[in-house]
Structures are given as structure tokens and as C-alpha cells.
Nucleic acid binder design. Structure first.
Lengths: 199, 199
DNA sequence: AGTGTTAGTGAACACTCGTTCTCGGACCTG
DNA sequence: CAGGTCCGAGAACGAGTGTTCACTAACACT
């Protein structure tokens, strides 16, 4: 066994990339194994050398995405700082990450319903951990008077839906660039929790 | 031809109801004509006495929904009033309507990609008209100084995504009732545009 | 040289898909 | 009673579904 398998065949990653693209475009049910194979340039039967089933392929994509998202968020937001600083970092991170990885995000958001129970059990805790981080920030800020908001649980979900929505309309290049859009969302989020964005 | 067809056979409406339910649950591609027919209690071939194709059935559902949504919104929001009043009415309407008709809403939001060009041409203008109403409110309020916001186009999309997101988590009965949730969203929206909600 | 692994092919399996066709009762109208 | 319309059943169409199979060329390791 080689230590770090050298320039391993990239078919598996190709499959991931093309499947992600197709799933995001047509939905899980709307894409066939032949579509995916054809997009990569192999026959459908060869997919089964890399993934045991279509469902496993979907779970692989979603789980990898959620782990990367969670890890990147924790790096960007960090465990310390004032609630306002952390909320700003969270919002900026979420929007830019979603702009940069729209297909991953879209998939994870839309295809939860296509997951069979096993996959669901693997994905939901990751999503919950992500959402919990935002809720914790809001609760800390609400307690110490930084934020003015009615209900942390509802507002955290509301903010998350707002931030995630950027994937629906944003396309580069457009009237606004990535960072300008992110700052607009950051300002709106801060105002939404009763915090003046400036200064 | 009868004037107002008396107690017309209800199969067509049954088909609409059950198809809406199934599409919302499993997605357009994930539901077969046999599933829909079985749910209503007829064979799949009988559907074609009422709708010429599966695609027409989807377009029928989406178009009816968008027309009802647009009409109901115009009744609730009205053409006059201060920007703050109109934004409040819009947010309250949007959340309560989405809570009451979650399947219709979910369908219209998620299955745009399942529409073939003809259907798309029928639906998109209706959706655009709806969104334009919110944008007009924001622009009026931004111009007269009621609202403090960075970019009307971005913020209107952000708010709409936030409000629509209520369908993802809200289930009755829960910790909060319909109207309490709606008021939480109204407050958050008002703060998001730099407006104090109270008074 | 011989062995096992990896990653392809092409054919086939058992179904399911949306749709079309023929047919037959139920009902309304003259 | 006769004719037409509506709405259902049942069978069938060709195409497409996820998956499995036997097989093979290329490569790595002893």
C-alpha cells in the first residue's frame, strides 16, 4: 500500500464534480446514472466501481459539503469575540461561501428530501451544528443587550434563509461584485438584530 | 352549456390537490402519473381526460397559485399608505399566506427548474410582478428617508428569501402560533430596513 | 513470470416512466 | 328510444430507470 496514493485516478472526483453539477441543475430524481457517466466520459456501469449506489453518491456529496462548510465556518467565525463581531463574521462568511460554492449549497439545501433515512441521519446533525452556532451568537448578544430581537430561534432561521437566498439570484459578473453583495447582507443582518452596522 | 356548472365532477380538483401534495413532498421528477392517479383512486390513463400532460398539470398548479398569491397580496397590501405601513402589511401577509399554503408555495419556489420553456414564460412574469411590489415599497421608503438600506434590489431579494423560509421549519402546532411568528418576522423585517418596529 | 487489484466495457435484468389506444358504461338532450 | 359527450378501465407502446453480470486490459508487487 502506498503511503499517500500518488496521482490516483481522478475518476471518482470527476464523478463527484459532474454529479454535483447535474444534481444542482436538474435535481436528484431528474438525473440518471447514464447522464452522470456520459458527462464524465465513461459507461454507467463503471460508476459502481467508485460508489455503491446513486443514493451513496448523493450522501457523499452532501456529507463532504457539510463537513467542509462547518469547518470553514469555524475557522472564519472563531470561538471568541463580541456577538457583533461574530455575527458580522458569520454573515460575511456564509454569503461569500455560498457565492463561491453555489452548487454544493443548493444541493444540500434542496435534496434533503431525496435522502433515505440512513443518509438523513448522517447529514442532519451537521446542519444542526451549523445552525446552532448562529443561534448561540444571537442568544449571547440578546442576553448582553447588544441585539434587540423577539425570538432567537425564529430570527436565526430567518437570517439563515435570507443569507442562503443569495444563491438564487447572484451571478458573476453582474451589477455588483461578490464582496459588495456580502457587505450589503452583513449590514442588513446587523440592522435586523437591532444593531447599527457602521463604526 | 350550464351557466355555472352545478356540482361538477370533482376529479379534476382532486387531481390538483393530490398532485400538489405529492409534488411538494417528492418533487416533480419524483412523482409518477401512477402515483397521482393511485392517490386519487383512478388509473393513470384517466388523468388525461383532465390534463393533457404531466407538465400541463404542473403549470396549472403553479399558475393558479401565483395568480391567487398576487391577487391576495394586492388585497392585503393595497396601493396606498406609508412605506412602513405597506412593508408591514406585505411581510405579515407573506408569512401568514406561506404558513397557510405551504405546499403551493414550496412547489412554486422549487419546481421552476422543472418547467419547460412554455410554462416558464407563463410563470416568471407573475413572480416578477410579486417581487416588484416589494421592491417598489423599499424604493419609496428609501427615497423619503423612512428606510435606511444599502441596495433596494439586493435587500428586497434578501427579505423575500427570509420571509419565504418560514415554510421550511414552521409546523402547527408548535411552540409559537401562526400570528406570533408572523409578528416576529414583521419586526425583523422592519429592523432590517432600519425602522423601529414599535409604536 | 505469476498473482491480485483496479477500473473500464457492453449486455442484460426487472421495472417504471409518460403517453396513447380501444373500449364500455353513465348521463344528458332531442 | 337514439345519439353524443363525459369519464373511467385496461392493455399496450417505446423509452428510460438503477443495478448486476461476466469479462478484459493495464498495472503493482512478490
Amino acid at each position: 500500500m502506498t503511503l499517500a496514493q500518488p496521482s490516483r485516478t481522478n475518476t471518482k472526483d470527476d464523478l463527484r464534480t459532474h454529479a454535483r453539477h447535474l444534481f444542482a441543475q436538474h435535481g436528484y430524481e431528474g438525473v440518471s446514472m447514464r447522464d452522470i457517466a456520459g458527462s464524465v466520459g465513461i459507461r454507467q456501469s463503471a460508476i459502481y466501481n467508485h460508489f455503491p449506489s446513486k443514493q451513496h453518491l448523493l450522501v457523499d456529496l452532501m456529507e463532504n459539503h457539510m463537513r467542509r462548510l462547518l469547518e470553514a465556518m469555524r475557522v472564519s467565525v472563531g470561538p471568541t469575540g463580541t456577538p457583533k463581531e461574530r455575527l458580522t463574521a458569520f454573515a460575511r462568511f456564509h454569503v461569500t461561501y455560498h457565492i463561491d460554492q453555489p452548487e454544493d449549497v443548493f444541493l444540500a439545501y434542496m435534496e434533503l428530501r431525496s435522502l433515505e433515512p440512513d443518509g438523513r441521519r448522517a447529514i442532519l446533525p451537521l446542519r444542526d451544528a451549523y445552525e446552532q452556532t448562529l443561534r448561540d451568537i444571537l442568544e449571547t448578544g440578546a442576553k448582553d443587550g447588544t441585539f434587540r430581537l423577539t425570538d432567537c430561534a425564529v430570527v436565526s432561521r430567518a437570517l439563515l434563509a435570507m443569507l442562503t437566498g443569495v444563491t438564487v439570484w447572484f451571478r458573476e459578473p453582474g451589477r455588483l461584485d461578490r464582496d459588495t453583495v456580502a457587505e450589503t447582507y452583513v449590514n442588513t443582518v446587523l440592522q435586523a438584530v437591532g444593531c447599527t452596522p457602521s463604526q
